[in-house]
Simulated assay, not measured.
Amino acid sequence: MRISTKARMNRLFTNGGCLDVAIDHGVCNEPSFLVGLEDMAGVVNALIAARPDAIQMAYGQADLLQSRPEQDKPALVMRIDMGNPYNAQRHRVMWSMLQNRDEPIIGALEMDAACVVVNLFMLPDEPELFRQCVDNISRVRADCHKYGMPLMIEPLVMLPNDMRGGYQVDGDVEKIVPLVRLASEMGADIIKADPTDDPDDFHRVVEAARVPVLVRGGGKEDLRAVLEKSARLMRQGAKGMVYGRNIYQHANPRAVVAALIAIIHDGVDGEAAWETYNNG
């Protein structure tokens, strides 16, 4: 690993763990994702005060974080692709593309990001979408190696649209593990993976990755259940989480961050994390 890559990784992972709060949902063109993100400046201010390890944003909003003078503010993880699999209605043509095709990571370098993130979609009957994602990653991987930028790949196995409607995760470990392995083979420095239906199976995802694995949050759930599941996933070898709606759509995001940080950095269980939340 290049020195510049390692230096950026060190900005993300505090004592080996990372809580990355994702607020890059504006690229999804899905109205329900924007609830709680109407005032982006206010959201960023609140998250800086809450002190997660990183905040995940797209180029157009990243200045709200990177223009801040604090030396100990969260690291920037930059989303550099976008696509249309997030809507409740399946589109006639499904696509995923880089936000800057000619120089994919130039915006991340400009904004001094610690990492870039790109999707690897696996949707039923959408081989062209999958091919586009592979092409995106291939282009980005070359630039990341050239400039020492860590690459986070987000492999997403999704259910057929008609099963539950819209953007829904398939938690089948037998489908997640091969896609995570593919992300590893393509040169991921970090993998952002869906939780398995049974959290105790998640060690198989970690073993397939061979790089740090951060658990993806997905849709908003009951917080106590989220904390319990998060603690179980950490015990299976996860290095942290990338959570969005379970934080920014919550009434007390700062307390949620504190509870998740306790799980990641202090090794507490779900019950102790729930107590941390209630004390926040």
Rank of each mutant, 00 (worst) to 15 (best):
L182V: 08
L109Y: 13
P178E: 03
A183K: 04
M186L: 15
N45E: 15
M1D: 09
I80K: 06
D72A: 12
Q249S: 10
R139N: 12
A108T: 12
N278L: 15
R51C: 04
L120A: 01
G244S: 14
R79S: 14
A108H: 12
N246R: 07
M234Q: 05
A54Y: 14
G267P: 01
G244N: 14
Y277F: 15
V93D: 11
D197H: 08
P104Q: 12
K229R: 15
D189V: 06
E271L: 07
I176P: 02
L65W: 12
G171V: 02
M9H: 07
A231S: 10
V21E: 11
G217Q: 12
V43F: 09
Y59E: 13
I264H: 00
A62G: 11
D135C: 10
K6D: 14
I105Y: 12
E228M: 09
P124R: 00
V268K: 02
I105Q: 10
G36S: 07
V44P: 05
L37E: 02
A209L: 08
A62N: 11
E126H: 01
P155E: 01
L227S: 08
G26C: 02
Q89N: 10
V213L: 00
V44N: 04
D125T: 04
E110P: 05
M1W: 13
D143S: 09
R141G: 04
L233A: 00
N161Y: 11
A7Q: 15
I190C: 02
V211R: 01
V169K: 06
V242A: 15
H145L: 13
L179H: 04
L223T: 08
M94H: 08
R2M: 14
N84V: 00
A114M: 12
P150M: 05
M163W: 14
K146Q: 12
V205W: 07
D197R: 10
E271Q: 09
K220R: 14
R245E: 09
G280V: 06
L64T: 05
E275P: 04
Q61T: 14
P52C: 10
D112F: 10
L182F: 03
L123H: 02
P160K: 01
A255H: 06
A41S: 11
I80N: 07
Q56M: 14
L65A: 10
